[in-house]
Measured scan of single mutants.
Amino acid sequence: MDEEYDVIVLGTGLTECILSGIMSVNGKKVLHMDRNPYYGGESSSITPLEELYKRFQLLEGPPESMGRGRDWNVDLIPKFLMANGQLVKMLLYTEVTRYLDFKVVEGSFVYKGGKIYKVPSTETEALASNLMGMFEKRRFRKFLVFVANFDENDPKTFEGVDPQTTSMRDVYRKFDLGQDVIDFTGHALALYRTDDYLDQPCLETVNRIKLYSESLARYGKSPYLYPLYGLGELPQGFARLSAIYGGTYMLNKPVDDIIMENGKVVGVKSEGEVARCKQLICDPSYIPDRVRKAGQVIRIICILSHPIKNTNDANSCQIIIPQNQVNRKSDIYVCMISYAHNVAAQGKYIAIASTTVETTDPEKEVEPALELLEPIDQKFVAISDLYEPIDDGCESQVFCSCSYDATTHFETTCNDIKDIYKRMAGTAFDFENMKRKQNDVFGEAEQ
């Protein structure tokens, strides 16, 4: 370990593993360490099931009705991949897709007046949907046509809207959309967690709705994908990429100290040895004095023996409960997957309800979601602090990732990755940087 590296990475969460992969592909010498004996950090999948019970201090362990412990891979952080989103792009560019198998999530649902409705995925579904009345549908269709044709580089498509100054509230007004449709559009399509976006320039919202539609167009059922064997497969896929390009991995490796000289990182000390480096990437748990708390998320993992009611017996789905429907500031989400994804025993389902904490009784906040899941065989409640770095790391060369937020997709995580890359490399992130180099010394032969 007593060696000189360009970059040392602490923690094998998804953000850290993707950055480690990119740095290795770009010719950097990388050492990647984790104090845990497993990959994934906060974003790991726990197996066998006995391990999950232990982690949540349920000492009696799983009953026999849960089947074989080894058949379970339970995500600690519930997220899906947008089919046309940035993480899929990263997987394709790096060819990490060859280590993973994905399934399309069967449906996306939205909560309205105590019931759940399928988010329409085709024009026919939209016309048949009970989510809105006849005239509302016509106006909504006009709005969707506007979004589909919108091109930020072609003012002819703006229809009198200025993407940089017109607020989204004004765009909704222009198409005369009612409150329910606005809730549905902002939260189930643009996937905002709160209503803060309404008074911001509309460009980002329009682009988010386009991303949803384009992702949906790829597979038809929903815009989301999920990897077989759980999300823990993602960091491992990128760790393989890093290793192929010469990255060194050490799990179960305690970090005793991060060594600084004149305010700059110069190395990491572990078990009496020092590895030197020019730059350091880590998750917040490794540098508690360089991060601040930015809120909390509650996630309740529920094991069920039945599909969720009114989802047409889907073996995977997402449910969004827009905040307006339950008098909150932030949406509540449910991600459900099952034995069909090799993450649970035969006939079992895993539904994870999550939201940003707003009160001193977080469990009560998630109740509307839990009511949709009854009866629940077993619950595991996790309340996590969200951390963000206190500075950009440019001076110390210590670059810290943000905690995983309450969103049900990876777009915010990818933004964090691109942002850290830019601060480390001094140049904007470009997907081309992730391409495997042809015929290089570490390149794998085609399968």
Rank of each mutant, 00 (worst) to 15 (best):
L31I: 03
K103N: 08
T185R: 00
L19Q: 06
G347T: 02
V119G: 04
E16Y: 01
I352G: 01
R70W: 14
G267N: 07
L241F: 00
K118L: 01
K329V: 10
T12G: 13
L304R: 02
P235S: 10
E261A: 11
Q318P: 01
P62T: 00
Y197H: 07
G426R: 05
K379D: 08
L234E: 05
V171A: 09
H341T: 07
M132V: 11
V326D: 04
D75Y: 00
I376G: 01
S108N: 09
Q378N: 14
G85E: 06
E64D: 08
G13R: 01
F135R: 14
E367A: 10
I244S: 02
D2H: 04
A406D: 03
G426V: 08
R139L: 06
I319K: 02
Y111A: 05
I259S: 03
R290C: 06
E136R: 03
L373Y: 15
K348E: 07
L241Y: 15
L59P: 11
T47K: 00
Q200W: 11
E444Q: 00
V357H: 03
D176G: 10
L31T: 12
S24H: 13
E51A: 04
M168V: 07
V25R: 07
L59G: 14
C317H: 04
L251F: 07
T407Y: 11
S167H: 14
T407I: 06
G67D: 12
G133V: 07
G272R: 07
R299G: 00
E233W: 14
A190T: 07
Y349R: 10
R193L: 09
K435T: 09
N262S: 11
V96M: 09
F146M: 03
E432S: 12
E51K: 09
A340E: 00
I18S: 08
Y38H: 11
L280A: 09
D430G: 10
T408N: 05
N312F: 07
Q57W: 15
K137N: 05
R70G: 12
E365L: 03
M168L: 00
F150S: 05
L52M: 00
D101C: 15
V357M: 12
K278Y: 15
K348A: 14
L189R: 04
V297R: 03
D34V: 04
D283V: 02
A239T: 06
G263V: 01
D196Y: 06
L304D: 02
K210T: 09
L372E: 05
L216P: 01
D391A: 14
Y39S: 02
M250K: 11
Y99D: 08
Q86E: 13
Q179K: 00
L370S: 13
Y339F: 02
Q378W: 06
H306N: 00
T427N: 14
Y99F: 09
S213G: 07
K142E: 07
E358Q: 03
A425P: 05
R55P: 13
F429W: 10
I8V: 09
K435L: 13
K142H: 08
Q447L: 01
E365D: 06
N439F: 14
N327L: 01
G85S: 03
F143N: 06
D405L: 04
M23T: 06
R55H: 09
V266G: 09
F150G: 09
Q279C: 12
K418Q: 09
C394S: 11
Y226S: 07
A294F: 14
E367Y: 02
F109E: 03
K112P: 02
Y212R: 01
D385V: 13
R436V: 07
F80V: 03
G85L: 10
N312Q: 07
D101E: 04
S330K: 13
I298A: 15
K418F: 13
D6S: 14
Y219C: 09
E395V: 13
F410H: 15
Y111T: 01
G247Q: 15
Y229H: 06
V104L: 06
P389T: 01
I390T: 07
K309T: 10
I8R: 03
L241E: 04
G246S: 07
P37R: 09
N310D: 10
P62A: 12
V398F: 15
D180Y: 07
E60D: 10
Y93H: 10
S401K: 03
G247V: 04
G178K: 03
T194P: 05
N130V: 06
V171I: 09
C317I: 07
A353S: 02
D377H: 12
G21A: 07
N415G: 06
R169Y: 14
R276S: 00
A369S: 05
G272M: 08
G393W: 03
G41D: 06
G272N: 09
T15M: 12
I321S: 00
E60W: 12
K418M: 04
T15K: 06
Q279W: 14
K112N: 06
H409L: 00
A351T: 07
D6F: 02
V343M: 03
I376L: 05
Q397K: 00
T124P: 04
S44G: 07
L304W: 05
A445E: 15
A445Y: 11
I209S: 01
S213P: 06
K29E: 04
Y39C: 04
L100K: 15
T165L: 14
E3D: 06
P254A: 06
S167M: 07
L87P: 02
P368T: 00
E233V: 01
C282S: 13
Y99L: 03
H409D: 13
E388D: 00
K174M: 14
N84E: 15
V334G: 02
V381T: 13
I308T: 05
K269E: 10
D154K: 14
R193P: 10
F143G: 02
H32K: 03
G160W: 05
A126V: 07
D257A: 15
S384G: 12
L31C: 04
A353P: 11
N324S: 11
R169G: 10
G347A: 11
L76P: 05
E371C: 11
A126S: 06
G232C: 10
Q279E: 01
F146H: 13
S270V: 11
I352K: 11
N130H: 04
P389K: 13
N324K: 00
T166P: 14
D196N: 09
M33T: 05
E388W: 13
I182V: 10
P163Y: 03
G107V: 08
F135A: 01
R218V: 15
L231V: 11
L304I: 01
F143W: 10
L280W: 01
E271P: 04
Y421Q: 06
F442C: 13
L216T: 11
E16Q: 09
P288Y: 01
I321G: 09
K422E: 12
S270D: 01
G13A: 05
S108F: 02
R98D: 00
D392I: 12
S354G: 08
V104F: 14
S242W: 01
K293Q: 01
K435D: 12
V291E: 05
S20P: 01
F431D: 04
E136A: 11
R55L: 09
R436Y: 09
K29R: 09
D392V: 12
Y349W: 08
N439G: 02
I332S: 01
K269Q: 06
Y245R: 15
G267H: 02
V145G: 08
L372H: 08
G272Q: 14
K115M: 10
R292H: 08
I420N: 04
E432A: 11
Y117S: 06
R218W: 08
T311A: 09
G67M: 14
R276H: 08
K364V: 13
A340S: 04
G272W: 04
L304Q: 02
K137L: 03
T248A: 06
I321V: 08
P163S: 06
E367R: 14
A243F: 01
L58I: 10
A128I: 13
A190V: 06
V110D: 04
D385G: 10
I8C: 11
F56V: 13
Y192N: 04
H409S: 00
R218H: 14
L198V: 14
G85C: 02
G133S: 08
D256N: 07
I319V: 07
L304V: 09
E16V: 00
S330T: 08
R328H: 12
C335R: 01
L49Q: 09
V96L: 10
S384W: 12
L127M: 10
M434R: 01
Y249K: 06
P389F: 13
P389I: 15
F146S: 10
P389S: 08
I18F: 07
K278Q: 07
G178N: 01
L228F: 08
N153R: 06
